[in-house]
Design a protein around this nucleic acid. Structure first.
Lengths: 96, 96, 96, 96
DNA sequence: ACCGTGGTTAGCTTTC
DNA sequence: GAAAGCTAACCACGGT
């Protein structure tokens, strides 16, 4: 990946400064930031997979762990939504 | 729902020691690790959104930046695949 | 949309019979079926919107109704997942 | 969670008569209608999947059919404009 | 120059 | 080869 960065922003050889001016540089900066974050996300996703693999390696059932994680997540979301609903009710009743 | 919770088959707090023993602790650890990573992923996704918002704030068209990022990603993937193919060729020819 | 359909299967002018033979007809049939279903889905989505609008018209808070519907949906999903989890446990223990 | 349910602020069954009166019935009706339509939508989505599966079963490439459907769905004019705009940006940034 | 946001859907990847 | 989970694009609605 470092090659591409050194080479410019893309798959062609044009230098950005010449054609895009200051806006082009700015755009490059945005794209660079986004791409770095996306890479981190990908890395994390891989780490998660490794953890599942490890858990499987010590005898756990991956499917079950997934369900557990999923249920815990649903719990949190449900709780959050219920709180929001309560807020809505209170607002509707003028108790906000 | 309360039945399941009482039955202990659920995903709830600290019944681990009793029913799972050491394995339960291990399981908890896996789940905790996974959840932490998932949170990080979520946080990164939010950061990415913020960058898009910022870029929009200075006049860029978000849709287009998304397209650019996506195109660049495809470029990289394609190049990677081509390199892998090249490696295969070299291996096949004994130049690995 | 009707123009495209008259023109053939796509965004070009070739007639399917000529270029695709029997397979082309079959393909057309699949695409037609899919598109009809998608239209129905769209129509239903519009109906749902109308119901929300109607409920708003008689004084209900749309946001609240949306949350209620959403929570009920989460309930169902959660229940379903819990049952699946139970199945997984039973399978794991050999009681399947 | 059990607290909310006991408190009656939730989304649960037949506390409607008591707390909501005629309005509660009306609300129930709206929610029921919406849920039925949503179920129909879900059923249709499943049907669509089946059609794709069937088409695959007789030798078509699902990916390609999806693309065809998607292309047909796209508004040509809009697509052209987006491409032109994208070209402009790519030129500006030197990715032409 | 209406923006932000949430919800919905589709498609891609990976798993078994 | 089927099935599932994850991710991302799209769209419409509400609010300000």
């Amino acid at each position: 990946m470092s090659e591409e960065e050194k080479a410019g922003i893309g798959h062609n050889s044009d230098n950005t400064k010449d054609v895009g001016g200051i806006a082009g540089q700015r755009l490059q900066s945005f794209i660079g930031r986004i791409e770095r974050m996306e890479e981190e996300k990908t890395a994390l996703a891989e780490d998660v997979k490794e953890v599942y693999a490890e858990s499987k390696g010590v005898g756990f059932d991956v499917k079950i762990i997934r369900k557990l994680v999923s249920l815990r997540k649903m719990d949190n979301e449900k709780r959050r939504e219920e709180e929001e609903l309560l807020d809505l009710y209170m607002t509707a009743v003028g108790m906000s």
